[in-house]
């Protein structure tokens, strides 16, 4: 059986309607992409992203509102900073940092979402399986 990467997408309230939009407009994205809707991208505890990797995600995407479209810019910037910090952490411990991405998705950008997700999925497929959970348990 060919390996398919498992991708967790944390979507904020607005960008989750962008993800829905993809469905309405007939754009497709692969079934191994699982979305988790949260009220705002800034409430995503970075530990949960780490947990997602531990539980077997090969990549994690965070979709957030475009900072230019927000009345207050901070929430998306907070997320951006966190993701950047987390990418640094992943790089340090030897996990490819491209497994964690942030995407700016507005509520009407279904096509952009499906396009980007497919592209990222292709990249993750090239990186290969991560399998953090398995490598932690294995006897050294």
């Amino acid at each position: 059986m060919s390996w398919k990467p498992r991708v967790i997408v944390f979507t904020c309230w607005c960008s989750s309607s962008g993800v829905d939009q993809a469905g309405f407009e007939g754009f497709t994205y692969p079934p191994n992409v699982l979305t988790v809707r949260v009220p705002c991208s800034a409430v995503i505890n970075p530990s949960l992203i780490v947990k997602a990797f531990e539980k077997g995600a090969d990549a994690v995407l965070v979709t957030a509102c475009r900072p230019s479209e927000l009345r207050r810019v901070a929430p998306s910037r907070v997320t951006e900073a966190r993701v950047s910090l987390l990418r640094r952490l992943l790089r340090t411990i030897g996990v490819e940092e491209d497994r964690l991405r942030i995407l700016w998705i507005s509520s009407n950008e279904g096509s952009l979402f499906s396009r980007e997700v497919s592209r990222i999925l292709g990249e993750v497929e090239r990186l290969g399986p991560l399998n953090i959970g398995g490598s932690m348990v294995e006897q050294g």
Binding site: F53, L86, L89, V137
Partner: peptide, 14 residues
């Protein structure tokens, strides 16, 4: 342990 040591250490680092 050791299943969740990854989250343990990365959370502490964060």
């Amino acid at each position: 342990v050791p299943q969740e040591l990854f989250t343990f250490h990365l959370t502490r680092a964060l």
